[in-house]
Amino acid sequence: MGFKLLSKLLVYLTASIMAIASPLAFSVDSSGEYPTVSEIPVGEVRLYQIADGVWSHIATQSFDGAVYPSNGLIVRDGDELLLIDTAWGAKNTAALLAEIEKQIGLPVTRAVSTHFHDDRVGGVDVLRAAGVATYASPSTRRLAEVEGNEIPTHSLEGLSSSGDAVRFGPVELFYPGAAHSTDNLIVYVPSASVLYGGCAIYELSRTSAGNVADADLAEWPTSIERIQQHYPEAQFVIPGHGLPGGLDLLKHTTNVVKAHTNRSVVE
């Protein structure tokens, strides 16, 4: 069995187990497998329904001669939608809004960016022009300005110390501490036991640490421990890039980060 097929099978099995364990909360999309990078042309966006009122959005972007996937989250909030992270750029984010209108038909009224990198804030200006209120932590807003990236308009308070959590509509926002970046936030959907790890969490097929220019490698494993301790009931975990899975993604990420750190020390 090929690795790609095995990865998709694991996603399907995880979703099936969740649907059985929580039949009222989960209505997993039966329309197909989780979209992969090879299936999404740059400039297009796919939506994948995880649970009743919960979707991931998947886009792709060219970077350094390669094409990478990027995940975000959409959560229903009454007759409105909360968006977590842009679709990595203005063109993708405009396509995301169009796809949401086509498939869901509810307005996106608020959006949260989970850290300051372009795959999370690139497209904020498109959201703002569409009347979406954009939010991020003060740290993310400051770092985005320093980096020359787009800056969300509103500040999220109460997320300055490791372990801080605040309720934001249908989700809980959690600051686990520094990891992929010093400002990275985690998003949890309690009604569906869905954990969105953003770039602080890796997919299972990833074996290298990737972009760690703004990471705190020493603190990252401790931050992941905080996530595990705060959300032990999480059933569906979405990484910032690639295929979702279960809580095993947290341990896998820790292993990859520690291996990278150990290699760096040896070198």
Rank of each mutant, 00 (worst) to 15 (best):
K4F: 03
L5F: 14
L6Q: 04
L6I: 05
S7C: 08
S7P: 15
L9Q: 08
L9C: 05
L10H: 13
L13F: 13
T14S: 12
T14M: 05
A15L: 06
S16R: 13
I17S: 04
I17P: 03
M18P: 04
A19G: 09
A19R: 06
S27F: 11
S27W: 07
V28C: 06
V28K: 09
D29H: 10
D29I: 13
E33D: 14
Y34M: 11
P35K: 14
T36Q: 07
E39R: 09
I40S: 12
I40R: 09
P41V: 06
A51V: 07
D52C: 03
V54G: 01
W55L: 03
H57L: 02
I58L: 06
Q61M: 04
D64N: 09
G65I: 10
G65P: 06
A66P: 06
Y68S: 06
P69R: 07
G72E: 01
G72H: 00
L73C: 01
I74E: 02
I74V: 07
V75F: 02
V75Y: 02
R76T: 12
R76K: 10
D79V: 13
D79K: 14
D79A: 12
E80V: 15
E80L: 15
L82N: 09
L82C: 13
D85A: 00
A87Y: 00
W88E: 00
G89D: 09
A90L: 10
A90T: 06
K91A: 13
N92D: 03
T93P: 00
A94V: 11
A95D: 10
L96V: 14
L97W: 04
E99W: 13
I100D: 01
E101A: 14
K102Y: 15
K102M: 14
K102S: 15
G105Y: 15
G105E: 06
G105N: 06
P107R: 15
P107I: 15
P107T: 09
V108R: 02
T109I: 11
R110V: 13
V112G: 03
V112I: 05
T114H: 00
F116Q: 03
D118G: 09
D119H: 01
R120N: 14
V121T: 11
G123N: 03
G123E: 02
V124L: 11
L127Y: 13
A129R: 07
A129M: 11
G131Q: 14
V132Y: 00
T134V: 12
T134N: 05
A136L: 02
A136S: 08
S139L: 10
S139R: 09
R141S: 12
R142T: 13
L143H: 12
A144S: 08
E145H: 14
V146K: 06
G148R: 11
I151K: 15
I151P: 09
I151D: 04
S155K: 14
S155E: 09
L156Y: 02
L156C: 02
E157M: 15
G158K: 15
S160N: 14
S161A: 14
S162G: 14
G163I: 11
D164E: 14
D164Q: 15
F168A: 04
F168K: 03
G169I: 03
E172K: 14
F174V: 14
Y175D: 02
Y175M: 15
P176C: 01
A178N: 11
A179G: 12
H180L: 01
S181L: 01
S181Q: 00
S181I: 00
T182F: 15
N184Q: 11
N184Y: 01
I186S: 11
I186W: 01
V187C: 01
V189T: 07
V189C: 01
V189K: 00
S191F: 06
A192N: 12
A192M: 08
S193I: 05
V194L: 08
L195P: 02
Y196G: 03
G198S: 05
G198I: 02
C199G: 03
C199P: 01
C199S: 01
E203T: 04
L204V: 12
R206V: 09
T207L: 12
T207Y: 06
S208F: 13
S208W: 12
A209R: 07
G210E: 13
N211R: 11
N211A: 09
V212C: 04
V212A: 08
D214C: 04
D216G: 11
D216K: 09
L217N: 09
L217I: 15
A218H: 11
E219K: 07
P221K: 05
I224P: 00
I224G: 02
R226P: 04
I227F: 04
Y231F: 04
Y231S: 03
P232F: 15
P232K: 15
Q235E: 13
V237I: 13
V237F: 14
V237G: 01
I238R: 01
P239W: 01
P239F: 00
H241P: 00
H241S: 00
G242Y: 02
L243P: 04
G245P: 01
L247D: 05
L249E: 00
L250E: 02
L250F: 07
K251F: 15
K251Q: 06
H252Y: 12
H252Q: 15
H252C: 02
H252K: 12
T253S: 13
T253Q: 00
T254P: 14
N255G: 14
N255V: 11
N262Q: 06
V265Q: 06
V266W: 09
E267D: 15
